[in-house]
């Protein structure tokens, strides 16, 4: 009886360990006001009946909407002071390879950090930060994680302030890739093979696409002034 119990437990553990997230992609469509609509797509392999918490990388989820999934799969937004997650419940007979989809809204994806009292501002006027952090808090490994952020129209990334973890010796793709996605400027954070506890993050400074005209107003007169005041450089020598 005892051996049978051990066998059942071992099989159960084996089934639980076999769950793998092959692909976890989130598209984060940011509005001008800094709020965003996030749409996630998750490919599971080795799925079996049970329940697990899927991390989402956001503190709060609003207007959560499950997408199409296998019959009986239940998705629900949950959260506490430490962050938010999606509670996934897989029914008996769920296909081993299943895709989950859901969307939600998140506020403050673009934000201006408030300096502490007595501290100097760290960003110039008009600049905002975009920060995305993801920690694999559940047991199943994630083979490939990607979060693609689409910036609001007419803004671009000024620089990538943080991209973690730093690419390893055998990784040649950047952790954060800036590019145009669906015709919009954006950034993609990507990491492969996240085990439980692994984290990845990016922080970008976002600015207006239009440059200030101050350089034009400053440098054009300077160039003209140089041409006038230094014209003797090319003047032919006067006969003595």
């Amino acid at each position: 009886m005892r051996s049978l119990a051990i066998l059942v437990l071992a099989l159960a553990c084996g089934a639980a360990q076999a769950l793998e997230i092959r692909r976890y992609e989130t598209r984060i469509d940011v509005d001008r006001d800094g709020a965003a609509l996030a749409t996630a797509s998750v490919d599971l392999a080795g799925a079996a009946a049970g329940r697990f918490r899927l991390p989402v990388g956001f503190a709060k989820l609003a207007d959560f909407r499950p997408g199409e999934a296998s019959p009986g799969v239940s998705l629900a937004a949950k959260g506490n002071a430490d962050g938010a997650w999606v509670e996934v419940e897989l029914p008996d007979g769920v296909p081993s390879e299943t895709t989950l989809g859901f969307s939600f809204r998140a506020n403050g994806v673009l934000f201006v950090p408030k300096p502490e009292a007595g501290q100097k501002a760290t960003l110039p006027k008009g600049s905002r930060l975009l920060r995305h952090r993801f920690v694999n808090t559940q047991e199943a490994p994630i083979a490939r994680y990607a979060a693609t952020v689409l910036f609001p129209p007419e803004v671009i990334a000024h620089r990538v302030n943080e991209q973690l973890p730093r690419p390893g010796r055998k990784e040649f793709a950047p952790r954060v890739e800036l590019d145009r996605f669906d015709g919009r400027q954006g950034a993609r954070l990507q990491l492969a093979n996240l085990r439980q506890g692994d984290r990845t993050s990016m922080e970008l400074e976002i600015v207006d696409e239009r440059r200030s005209a101050v350089w034009l107003l400053l440098l054009v007169p300077l160039a003209a002034g140089y041409l006038f005041f230094f014209r003797d450089l090319v003047r032919p020598p006067r006969p003595s």
Partner: peptide, 24 residues
């Protein structure tokens, strides 16, 4: 001198390329 300034302004005010950050 003006040539350098002209090139600076030209590159600075070009429409941003896909994947090119403002600081780049």
């Amino acid at each position: 001198f003006p040539g350098g300034i002209l090139l600076f302004l030209l590159i600075l005010y070009l429409p941003p390329g896909a994947g090119l950050s403002a600081s780049a």
